[in-house]
Amino acid sequence: MKYKIVLNGCSSTYRIQAGETGAFIRNNLESQPGDGSTIVFYNDGAAKENLIAASPTTRLHLVKINSYRPEAVLTYLKELEYGIECDLYLFPGDYAGSELSTRFAARTGGSSIAAVDKIEPGSESLTCYRAIYSNYLRGRFRLGKKPFCLSIARGLSAGAPGNQIEKRQVTESDFWDLPENRFTRDCEFTAADPVGELGRAPFILAAGRGVKSREKTEMLGKIAKELGAELGVSRPVAMSAWAPLDRLLGISGTMARPKLCLAAAVSGAAAFYAGIEKSKKIVAINIDAQAPLVRAADVAIIDDYETVLKELVKLVQSGEPRE
């Protein structure tokens, strides 16, 4: 199957994109080296040698643009790929990738699907798997029209480039000068850490709606510090602005992979659980023994979260210091 990976080299998430898409290809396609290539959109801010070094395929095409705007990138991509036969365009699972995959399919008459976790190529179709029903269920879909345009599910792999490629074949084009869609009058950009504290944390204390207030959420933030954990929260806590959005765990937030996650007053809805399911160990603290998280945890305490966590802080602080 001929495939192309499309990456956003203007973003500081480039290495994550390259790692995720490369791992997806290795896990899903028995491809020969000549089958695939990568298209990288980049601008002045990006170091070319780093883009080349992290590329998931031997062949890559670098496209210089002014700045990353989905409308412009779609126009360039269509122009670049005009008349070229390609079975599959693979996009990362981030915001930019899921947007481009759908819109590129619409422009090329292909078929598209977002957040795919596995594919099985057929001769004329592609079978794709992805979560449905807020992550409670998983659907199997057939895409029937080429090019198949997919974005992959977020958090599938750890995200660092995993393949060592000796020699790259690099081609380039320059769309730097082309006029852009100017519906935007002005734009201020504030950079944020794309992985975030939660993405790196080995130990997370997750707080759910059952904590009941902003004050209690702040108190849990302090307890997290005392335990040596990072605070994560469920959607209702973030939506009530009891904690900042970058603390949100789940399909709409961080897909974390800590060694340990203590989840306090969280029911364990599937959309939340996706954000902690890669944890090595999960502990649930809930007053309700029937809460879904209790079954999906390694161990659970059925009791009030505040009493349990305060007791736990005492125990941890009185124990031997951790290395």
Partner: peptide
């Protein structure tokens, strides 16, 4: 956006 916030 993936690496920050835009106000436009």
């Amino acid at each position: 956006v993936d690496d920050g916030t835009c106000r436009q």
